[in-house]
Every structure is written in structure tokens, then in C-alpha cells.
Amino acid sequence: MSKPVTVTLEFSGGLETVFNNIKSRKVTIPAPEDGKTLDMGYVVKYLADNLLKGNRDMFVLADKIRPGILVLINDADWELEGEEEYEPKDGDSLLFVSTLHGG
């Protein structure tokens, strides 16, 4: 059974516009009610369900992170950290940055 974790969330690259213009915020993610693991897959769905205020498709497609959005865990590409299976720890910094907006 997972415990809640407190992480620093950051949104940039235009993604902040669907998250109420949050650029950076400390957020406590509650443990999943079904007793499952609190991993990044769960965090993404939790954010989409609870924090997202705009167009959901800008962030997730079928509850998975939309291709073209980069996720950095403590400044490292989440692909190096196990992506959805990474289990965030207290104090982790999670950055979601869109590459899909205008250049």
C-alpha cells in the first residue's frame, strides 16, 4: 500500500494554460484508493482528473501522457527513470513540458 507523496509540479511550454496557469506548485498526491502503487502512471491520471482545468486532450490521450509532452523527473527525461513505472518520492520535482506549442 503506497503512502501519499509531496512533489513539486511544474508546467511549461504552454501546458500551464490547461493547468490554471500553474507554473510551479507543491502538491501532495494521495495514495491510490484501490491500494495500487503510486507511480507516474497514477500521477498523470490524478493530475488530469484533479488539477487540469482546460482541454484534457492537451495533456493526456486515453489517460496516458500525450505524445509530444516531455516529462522530467528531477530534471532528467522520465524515459531514463522508468516512465510510468517510476514511483515518485517526497521532494521530487516533476516537470511537464509541451513541445506541441508554437515555436
Binding site: G13, L70, V97, H101, G102
Partner: peptide, 17 residues
């Protein structure tokens, strides 16, 4: 490009027309 901008802390603006 996005990671370069991020790690170099470049000042850019993202918006959609």
C-alpha cells in the same frame, strides 16, 4: 530543442496562434 531551451534556461514564449 525543448530540452536544450530548458537546460540552458533560455527565455522563450509558448502560445498558440
Amino acid at each position: 530543442i525543448v530540452l536544450y531551451a530548458h537546460h540552458k534556461k533560455l527565455d522563450y514564449f509558448s502560445t498558440e496562434c
